[in-house]
Structures are given as C-alpha cells and as structure tokens.
C-alpha cells in the first residue's frame, strides 16, 4: 500500500498539488492554472491525483497554503492551514537545511525570507506592486509573442543590456515599448527587463536585509533563466533553484501536514470522494451594520461548510458554535459511556 501526505497551494495564478512519501520525497506534483476558479481547479487537481495514484493509495494527512488556503482546507478537510511564508520556509529548509535566504517570486506576489540557524529570522512580502511578479512577465511575453518558457533564454542571448525602468509595471512597459521603437534588439530589451525587475525586487523587498548564501530561488518565476542570471550578477553569488521550485509552497504544506498528523495521531482528510460533491460559493451582503461585509458561504450541496468575510464574527461564529456543540455532545456521550462502563 502506498502512503502519502498531500500538500495543496492555491495561489492567485496557479494551484499546485504535491504528494510526498514518509521520507518527504516528492512522489507526484501537479501544476494547474487557477484561472480565477479555485473550486473547479481544486476538484480537477484532486481528480487528476486520484487517477495517477495506485488503487490502494492512502492519504495520511493534508496541508493547505496559498491565498486560497481557507477554501482549499474546507474542501479537502486539511489537517493544517498555514500562511505561504511558513510553507515556503519549511520546504526550502527541507531541501537545503542550512539555507540562509529564500527568494520567492510567484504569480502575484513576491517574498524574501531570511533564515538563520534553521528558523525564519525575518521576512518581507510584496503584494501591492505587480512589477517583477509572474503576471507581469506573462503579460510582456504575451505582448512580444514569445512563449513564457523561452522568455529567459532570450535574455541570455543578449550582448548589450538596455536599462529599463523597473520601479512600476506601467512605466516598465512604456519604457520597453520606447526602447523597442528606437530599434534595440528584443534580446537586449528582455535582458534589461530581467535586470530591472531584479533591481526592483532587491531595492524594495530586500532593503536593509542581509542576503547571505546559500540562496534558494523558488516560485514560478524561478523557471526564468534570465531572472536567475540577473540575480546571480546582482548578488554576486550562486543561486540554487530546487528541482520542485514551482511547487515549493505545496511541498511545505505537505511537510507541515506530516508533522501535524504525527503529533495529533489522526487525519481530517475527507477523501477523494470530494470530487463528486457539488461545492458552491454563495455571497450574502450582511446589512447588520454600516460595514456591509460581503459574507461568503461555502456549500456542499445544501450543507453550509464554512462562512467568512465578516468583520464581527456574527456569521463565521455560527459555524464554530455548531462545531462546539458537536464536540460537546461527543464528549458528554463519551463520559456517559465511561460512567456506564465504570
């Protein structure tokens, strides 16, 4: 029988699924585009995982991370729900136990994590500015009609990089157009873009932080050899890109799930059966106060699984209350049985 831990990372651009065995080795990884429909992509991912696994596969635990972690955790019954910083740090520590710096550039955000002696020491996260994230590179590749996979290779062929203003995605784009209209070669412009994005990342996120080796670079953008090269030049150090760079968040979530399940002794995973369920999200506008919160309800057929989005806790607490009474009833029953036995 095969036994695995499942890690799910539902991000803004991609949703990743990873199965690791008890030695934390990646058995299977899936990289899907979220395309704005996390519920659909979750089911699709789980269905694909089920197909690719032997019949007697057993999932020992599930961890969820990413901006859609709450939703993902409800759908699969995650044992642990963790923020992206912790998940990425855990995964890179497992890959390289003495890592000191983690550079992570994803679809819509970028992070820097500084580690010392195997613990996170400092971190910064950029979610406001799109310059330097995967979405922007994607857009530029699309505009230049170059497959995103080859984008980095173009940069490596450059002979004389062009300086592109990288502070802001809008300015970077108009600067690129300007340079292209003056007749600069595509390779040089793309290389210039890579360099300016790296400068922007280091000036904004890494300001005042000590970047020490070993340095790990992960997230979807780590596939871009142009960016990797630019980081190496700018930092004058070797950059390690792990084999599973694109799903490190999910790997971290799976490792965390393993730790959690080993501690508590059981899993809350609801099984692959969830792909047959009809999950829906419904949003209600609460009129209880002038905050007018948009409360989101997650339904499994007609059963309300979770509610969130309210500031006061009026809606989300109703679910907690139900859980509480359920636990209470269970405890009472147990004590009663004990009394009967005793």
């Amino acid at each position: 029988m095969k036994e695995f831990y499942l890690g799910v990372d539902v991000g803004s651009v991609s949703s990743n699924f990873v199965l690791i065995d008890s030695d934390k080795k990646v058995y299977k990884k899936l990289y899907l585009r979220t395309i704005g429909q996390p519920i659909k992509v979750m089911k699709e991912g789980m269905a694909k995982l089920k197909e690719s696994c032997p019949e007697d596969t057993k999932i020992l635990g599930v961890g969820a991370t990413g901006s859609g972690r709450q939703l993902a955790s409800i759908m699969v019954g995650a044992d642990i729900v963790k923020n992206e910083i912790t998940a990425h740090a855990v995964a890179s520590l497992d890959y390289c136990p003495d890592v000191k710096t983690v550079l992570e550039i994803g679809g819509q955000d970028s992070k820097i994590i500084i580690l010392r002696d195997g613990v996170v020491y400092d971190f910064a996260m950029n979610t406001v500015c799109a310059a330097g994230t995967g979405s922007f590179l994607d857009r530029q590749a699309g505009r230049l009609n170059i497959p995103i996979e080859e984008f980095g290779a173009y940069a490596l062929r450059s002979t004389a990089p062009v300086r592109i203003a990288g502070r802001c995605a809008v300015f970077a784009e108009s600067d690129m157009i300007h340079k292209q209209q003056t007749g600069q070669s595509l390779e040089d412009i793309i290389n210039g873009l890579c360099q300016s994005l790296v400068r922007n990342y280091l000036n904004n996120l890494a300001k005042g932080k000590q970047i020490e080796t070993p340095i790990i670079f992960q997230g979807g953008v780590a596939a871009n050899v142009g960016i990797v090269k630019a980081f190496e030049t700018e930092l004058n150090a070797k950059i390690i890109v792990p084999e599973n760079y694109d799903v490190m968040g999910a790997v971290g979530a799976a490792i965390l799930a393993k730790e959690e399940v080993e501690k508590k002794g059981y899993t809350t995973f609801c099984g692959f059966d969830m792909i047959n369920h009809d999950f829906r999200a419904r949003s209600i506008e609460c009129g209880g106060c002038p905050n007018i919160c948009e409360v989101v309800e997650i339904l499994d057929d007609d059963k309300v699984l979770a509610r969130w989005g309210d500031r006061c806790g009026k809606w989300s607490n109703t679910i907690v209350d139900k859980e509480k009474t359920a636990v209470k009833e269970k405890l009472e029953k147990l004590t009663k049985e004990k009394i009967l036995v005793g």
Partner: peptide, 13 residues
C-alpha cells in the same frame, strides 16, 4: 498573512 507568518516565526524561534 503577514501577522500569521510573524507569529509562526516567533513560535518556531
């Protein structure tokens, strides 16, 4: 996310 990660970091430290 930031506050959550910060608290996590302190606990692990």
């Amino acid at each position: 996310t930031r506050v959550d990660a910060f608290v996590d970091m302190l606990i692990r430290k």
